[in-house]
Amino acid sequence: IITTAKSRFTRTRVGKTLVVTTAAAAVAVGSVTGAQAFADPAEAVPEQGGQTAGSVYANRVIVPTSLIAGAARGQEYTYWSPGSDERLHLSTATLLEPKGKTPSAGWPVLVWAHASNGWNQSCAPSKTRNGADDAAVTRLLKQGYAVISPDYAAVGMPGAPQYSDVSATAHNIVDAVRAGSDVGESDLSPKWAVVGEGQGASAAVELARNGASWQSGRLDFRGATATSIPAGYDDLVTNLSPSSQPVPKGVVADVLYTLAAQEPDDVKSILSTRGTALVEQARTLCSAALAKEIGGTQLADLVSRPLSSNAKLAAALRKSLAIPSRGFSRPVLMSQRLMDPTVVVPTSLEYVTQAQFASNKVTMKTYLTGDDAAARKQERSAVDAYLEDLF
């Protein structure tokens, strides 16, 4: 099945067969005959013109032995989605369906909008299993949701600022749902919501504002949950300088990934020797490995001059990294633990407080305990209850 310049994805029982374009490997129905059966986002994008955002490029059935706990069946698919460069890119997502009888209206759909794990394509969820992500998706499957896990657009592509672009990531999620509705067909309900964490939380908040207007067809966006929201990240990055204050190591890693996603010529003049070495490593290492390389390095050690000295880069990053605090059209749960190594907690707490005052669509949750395990348990319960109310 080939996407053409005038036609969106042609509908057949793609959920039971393997769909490829002529550029993909040859396959037999329901089985894979090549080492890779679908288009790889890291490979050269076919120049077909007229591709439609959210249209499927190819898909393949996931063999049962590769499914995570709680999944009855699954598919991996590539689809088209625009980046901040206003070009369409191929991206990859995974669709998992829970065990049990499919409801007459189809499984309600949740998008697991994961936190950043790295800029290199090998770090994407479809390439590398992550224990925390698997646990989160398994929990959602066991509650009776179909789960879509997108890689996000242009991961691993040189000069790909959309990796750190909130709006581009949010659009990528909507397109993953559009494409997933074709891949999953009648097994899926048109009702969907987003569960976002970290980088994914920023996109979830953006979708609470714009997702309803971006969706198409019979899709019915219900709302979002956002945990560990990187509030103020736009200020932190654009104010990066030799006098930047210390932040958690996870935030340092995110900054390195953001810098690695920019054109090398745009950042080389501001980086210190240490910063240059770590940005180069951020182009290949996933988060756990990069954290080891960071060691005790802080933001101030990364640069020899302020990032604002490149006014064009600073303006572009401020625009792409900003997250909204008002104007929401769908309900959103904003949750923040008191102990969180992935964000600057005081800034995140200030943001969610202001957002709740500014919009009646926002529900704020905090957990008055310094015990991280207890706080995580309370947060999971709050997210689960909120999702149930959305549907």
Rank of each mutant, 00 (worst) to 15 (best):
residue 1 I to T: 14
residue 6 K to R: 13
residue 6 K to W: 10
residue 12 T to K: 10
residue 14 V to A: 14
residue 16 K to P: 00
residue 19 V to Q: 06
residue 25 A to Q: 02
residue 32 V to M: 13
residue 34 G to W: 07
residue 35 A to Y: 07
residue 38 F to L: 10
residue 41 P to G: 06
residue 44 A to T: 11
residue 47 E to A: 10
residue 51 Q to K: 01
residue 54 G to V: 03
residue 56 V to N: 01
residue 63 V to P: 01
residue 65 T to Q: 03
residue 65 T to P: 01
residue 69 A to T: 14
residue 70 G to H: 00
residue 71 A to R: 04
residue 87 R to P: 06
residue 88 L to K: 00
residue 88 L to A: 14
residue 95 L to Y: 05
residue 97 E to C: 09
residue 107 W to L: 08
residue 107 W to H: 09
residue 110 L to Y: 09
residue 111 V to S: 12
residue 121 Q to S: 11
residue 122 S to K: 07
residue 125 P to T: 03
residue 128 T to V: 04
residue 136 A to V: 12
residue 142 K to G: 11
residue 144 G to C: 04
residue 144 G to F: 07
residue 148 I to P: 15
residue 150 P to E: 02
residue 154 A to D: 11
residue 159 G to C: 09
residue 161 P to H: 02
residue 166 V to F: 03
residue 166 V to E: 03
residue 169 T to R: 10
residue 176 A to N: 04
residue 176 A to H: 01
residue 179 A to W: 09
residue 187 D to E: 14
residue 189 S to F: 07
residue 192 W to P: 03
residue 193 A to F: 01
residue 205 V to A: 07
residue 215 Q to F: 05
residue 217 G to L: 12
residue 219 L to F: 00
residue 228 S to G: 14
residue 242 P to V: 04
residue 243 S to F: 13
residue 247 V to W: 11
residue 250 G to F: 08
residue 256 L to E: 06
residue 258 T to V: 07
residue 259 L to F: 05
residue 272 S to Y: 07
residue 272 S to A: 09
residue 273 T to Y: 08
residue 275 G to D: 13
residue 279 V to Y: 04
residue 284 T to Q: 09
residue 289 A to W: 05
residue 289 A to H: 09
residue 292 K to I: 10
residue 293 E to I: 00
residue 296 G to Q: 12
residue 298 Q to E: 06
residue 299 L to S: 15
residue 313 L to R: 09
residue 314 A to E: 04
residue 317 L to E: 14
residue 319 K to T: 11
residue 321 L to V: 00
residue 327 G to D: 11
residue 328 F to Q: 12
residue 331 P to G: 12
residue 346 P to F: 00
residue 346 P to Q: 01
residue 348 S to W: 04
residue 352 V to L: 13
residue 355 A to D: 11
residue 362 V to A: 05
residue 365 K to Q: 13
residue 375 A to S: 08
residue 378 Q to F: 11
residue 379 E to R: 10
residue 382 A to V: 07
residue 386 Y to N: 14
residue 387 L to S: 02
residue 388 E to G: 02
residue 388 E to N: 11
residue 389 D to W: 00
